[in-house]
Design a protein around this nucleic acid. Structure first.
Lengths: 209, 209
DNA sequence: TTCCGTATAGTAGGTTCCGACTAGTAGAGA
DNA sequence: TCTCTACTAGTCGGAACCTACTATACGGAA
């Protein structure tokens, strides 16, 4: 299993779009936004153009023509190559098959939850609950107005179902944790490091590792 | 709300460690690994040293002395500044309070699930279920042997509880989706783009946007 | 006592990535 | 017809990031 040459998922999006038909970069960007796929990809013009170049270098896509509309600057239209098609499917398969460790910033912050003290921590998380609630509702709304209204097959919005499921789980955990902190069932020891290892309130002595 | 100067969460880890006591970079790395915090942070020596430098530039930490053990090279020991302490707490609060959109690679791949066809897609996801199952068990095992065994207060491993909760949700969704594909309850239309928009099997004509 | 593997500690270099900026065009309104 | 704003389309410089590599020290085996 050789290492991937390109890892940025914007490249996956580009390849995916070019399976449909040739496009120029700007059109890729607007198409992704229209289809609301910009929540699964991190899109910005800078990396889009870099990515397209990298794909050309690797021979996964190639310029097929340049067009000019009115007096706008020329635009280069790209199409995928055979190699690009195969790589697209292989990459997809790999991404679906093997989980890669992700490092969400929130998990990092949670690992230092203790530093804030119980009140401030519960307060911050409670606000997060508000945001997450709205986010979940937003995905539900989008799904209802597309798939729910018969406008699109489920398969076309399947990633929204996934994001919704995970968002709900996050919301659940956060809500529960706020309740636990405020209810006192999540103990808040004061930790201190000594020569012997860690100690915390309610404990004689603790070794760690 | 001015924009963050440093966004890499390795910097958060460094600040967090220096709240305890001064350390040199190599010690930070080993400490994080020992405490199993390397699953919440993406650690590698390259960015660690870069990050420490950036923190010094911003005045959040500062070198306090250099030490030398045996004939090993000198090591610079850093401590956090007052500013660094305040920034640490403010950053934590912000990370906990406001969800930032993350872009997991899996979501990107799921959005092109259709391209693989039902058999290959179900196959890949089924393998993912295996991996996720093992991952969930691994977190459970770690929690059982630390918090469960009374070795550490829950608060010290709270991020593992979070990661576990989310991992279970992912597993659930993936398992269910495999079942839906194989059971036929997730329809697999062949999509085609025409001048008028999108069409797919089982539908006369579809407009999209 | 020499060799080998592992731990220690960090550097170098290139690639990737992104935000900020540029600049032309079309259309609305005064 | 002049200006103002929003859209179109992309460039550029620098920061962030990671991989691969260096090089020394130490402990144990042969």
């Amino acid at each position: 299993m050789a290492k991937r040459k390109i890892t940025n998922t914007v490249a996956l999006a580009v390849l995916g779009l070019l399976q449909e038909r040739p496009m120029h970069p700007y059109e890729m960007a607007t198409t992704l936004r229209e289809r609301l796929k910009d929540s699964s990809f991190k899109l910005n013009s800078g990396s889009l153009y870099d990515t397209v170049e990298a794909l050309v270098r690797h021979g996964w896509i190639e310029p097929v023509r340049t067009v000019r509309e009115g007096r706008r600057p020329e635009r280069t239209v790209y199409a995928h190559t055979d190699l690009g098609h195969r790589e697209f499917l292989a990459w997809l398969d790999e991404l679906l098959r093997r989980p890669v460790p992700e490092h969400p910033k929130f998990a990092a912050a949670v690992s230092y939850l203790g530093a804030l003290g119980p009140e401030a921590a519960a307060d911050a998380l409670a606000e997060r609950v508000e945001h997450l609630t709205r986010h979940v509702e937003e995905i539900e709304r989008v799904l209802a107005s597309t798939v729910g209204a018969g406008g699109l097959p489920r398969l076309f919005m399947i990633e929204a179902e996934y994001l919704l499921h995970v968002a709900r789980a996050e919301l659940e955990w956060t809500r529960r944790t706020v309740a636990e902190i405020r209810g006192g069932s999540l103990a808040w020891p004061e930790a201190e490091r000594t020569d012997q290892g860690w100690t915390w309130s309610g404990q004689e002595r603790g070794g760690n590792g």
